[in-house]
């Protein structure tokens, strides 16, 4: 669960500008494992993105006469206890993972983490101190326990809020689609996933500020905004990408654990965590291994894909 900090690669900072990205891509393309990982990620995320089109059944569609079946022509990966198609449920679970990872990485890691890291590093002084102290408080909280607690406490409130939105606007189906639980999980995870990013970005910005070209720009009277946009951001863009790839896996893993504990995505909205929960237990595994294996293999492939791709990206940026 702990956010694995991406190590700033050694060759970092030697690269600058747009063309460097194509260089990194060139290097990445030559790595077979990276490409396979990329394909795996695209396939799983694609299945999630187009689940409503691709899935043979809906994730709620039951057939009580055909519960707990094995692999068949109708149900390629079998069915669960209620006769719901496991393949379809896995695809919709991938959609859940896609939504949560994208949202948390965007907000928690990209916006909050980078924003606060930049601010702390660039402004320094009390702003830096305040942000870093808050970060320290968050990193001394037992993350999983807090996430469980926050979700258990917040979700009823969030559901009520979403329901009142529903009642006062033409929007419908927000609550029943599990939207509220997505919001809760997303908020709770964002709260914890900015710290690691912010620290790394801050450290990098601190280093950058000592560099001649930034000092020169500042000496020449460039506005702060200009310095940040023109000089700082391009120089930390690699780090940002690395950080995202490192965060994706742990966000997906956290969502898994939360839903497994029953405080994450709420049924009937499907999630890998809930599917795993149904299939866990040695006896269940013995009798119906596909209940565990279908979500288990999918999520493992995804997490492995993230890890391998992140590694390769790290190497590629470092110039290896």
């Amino acid at each position: 669960m702990a956010t694995q900090a991406a190590q700033a690669p050694a060759g970092f900072g030697a690269l600058e500008g747009r063309s460097e990205w194509s260089l990194v891509w060139e290097r990445l393309r030559r790595k077979k494992l990276a490409m396979i990982s990329l394909v795996v990620i695209i396939v799983i995320y694609g299945a999630g993105l187009f689940a409503s089109v691709l899935a043979p059944y809906s994730y709620t569609e039951q057939n009580l006469d055909r519960g707990l079946e094995g692999i068949s022509a109708d149900h390629w990966l079998g069915t669960d206890r209620l006769g719901r198609d496991l393949l379809s449920r896995a695809m919709y679970s991938a959609r859940t993972t896609l939504i949560i990872t994208a949202a948390v990485v965007l907000s928690g890691s990209l916006l909050l983490g980078n924003g606060l890291g930049l601010l702390a590093g660039y402004r320094g002084g009390w702003v830096d101190n305040a942000i870093m102290r808050v970060g320290e408080v968050f990193s001394s909280l037992p993350g999983l326990l807090m996430l469980i607690l926050i979700n258990a406490s917040l979700s009823p409130r969030v559901v009520d809020a979403v329901r009142s939105i529903e009642e006062n606007t033409p929007l419908t189906g927000l609550v029943s689609s599990g939207f509220a639980s997505y919001i809760t999980v997303f908020l709770a995870l964002s709260l914890f996933f900015w710290v690691g990013t912010a620290r790394i970005i801050r450290a990098q910005v601190l280093q950058l500020r000592e560099r001649e070209f930034i000092m020169a720009a500042e000496a020449l009277g460039a506005s702060q905004r200009r310095v940040i946009i023109r000089h700082v951001l391009p120089n930390i863009s690699f780090l940002v990408v690395l950080q995202i790839s490192a965060t994706l896996g742990s966000v997906a893993g956290s969502e898994l654990v939360l839903s497994w504990f029953g405080v994450g995505i709420q049924p009937p909205a499907p999630s890998f965590g809930a599917m795993l929960f149904e299939g866990s237990g040695a006896r269940t595994f013995q009798a119906h291994p596909n209940l565990l294996l279908v979500p288990g293999v999918a999520i493992t492939m995804l997490l492995l894909g993230f890890a391998l791709l992140g590694d390769a990206l790290n190497d590629a940026i470092a110039g290896r």
């Binding site: 494992l33 898994l256 965590g273 795993l276 013995q286 493992t300």
Partner: peptide
Amino acid sequence: DPFVISTLLFLQAIPVLVVIPPLLWLFATQ
């Protein structure tokens, strides 16, 4: 080198929630 590292990455990627039931099934019940 890559073999060891990939194996380790693979082991790291499997969520504990996925690993335990098969382990129990194999070592405790079978």
